[in-house]
Amino acid sequence: MHTRSLYGRLVDPVIYIALIGLALITVYPFIYVLIASVSEPVYVMKHQGLLFWPVGFTLKAYGYVFDNPMILTGYRNTLFYVLVGTSVNMLMTSLGAYSLSRRYIKAGSFIMLMIVFTMFFSGGLIPSYLNVKSLGLQDSIWALIIPSAINTFNLIVMRTAFRGVPDSMEESAKIDGANDFVILFRIFIPLILPLFTVIILFYLVQHWNSWFPAMIYLRTRELYPVQLILREILIASSTDTMTSGSATAMDSEQIGETIKYATIMVVCLPIICVYPFLQKYFTKGIMVGAVKE
Rank of each mutant, 00 (worst) to 15 (best):
L50A: 12
S134K: 14
I17M: 15
V27S: 10
T3R: 10
A161T: 12
R163T: 07
S210T: 11
A161H: 13
S87E: 01
G74V: 05
E257I: 15
F57D: 04
L10D: 02
D167M: 11
L278V: 13
R186D: 06
I146Y: 07
S99K: 00
I115T: 00
P29Y: 09
I199R: 08
S168V: 07
L234F: 04
L113K: 05
V267Y: 05
V14W: 11
P166Y: 08
R4C: 08
H47Y: 02
Y104H: 13
F52A: 07
G177A: 10
M112L: 10
F196N: 03
D251I: 07
A236R: 12
K60W: 04
G123M: 02
S122V: 10
F30H: 01
R76G: 12
L83T: 14
F188A: 13
Y203H: 10
R221Q: 11
G49Q: 03
R159E: 02
G96F: 00
M45N: 10
I31K: 04
V42E: 09
I146D: 05
R103Q: 15
I15V: 15
I259P: 11
L91C: 05
G108F: 02
P69G: 00
I141M: 12
I71N: 00
G56I: 04
T239W: 14
G8N: 11
F30R: 01
V267W: 05
K280W: 06
T118D: 11
F66I: 07
L72D: 00
L34Q: 02
R163D: 08
P127M: 14
A262C: 04
A18E: 04
V266W: 00
G285C: 13
M45G: 01
M215Y: 14
F196T: 05
G245A: 13
I150M: 14
I216M: 15
S109T: 11
G164I: 03
V226M: 03
I105R: 06
V267Q: 03
Y217G: 10
A262S: 03
I286A: 07
V132E: 02
C268P: 02
W208H: 07
Y16E: 05
T58S: 09
H2G: 04
M70S: 09
F80Q: 04
I187M: 07
Y261P: 01
F57A: 06
G85D: 02
V267F: 07
I20T: 15
R221P: 06
S172Y: 09
F80V: 12
E232L: 04
A262K: 03
L19Q: 12
G74Q: 02
L51V: 08
S244W: 11
L34W: 00
L6H: 10
F120Y: 12
L155T: 00
P13R: 12
P190L: 14
G63S: 09
F30A: 10
I150P: 12
M1C: 05
A23P: 12
L113D: 04
D180C: 00
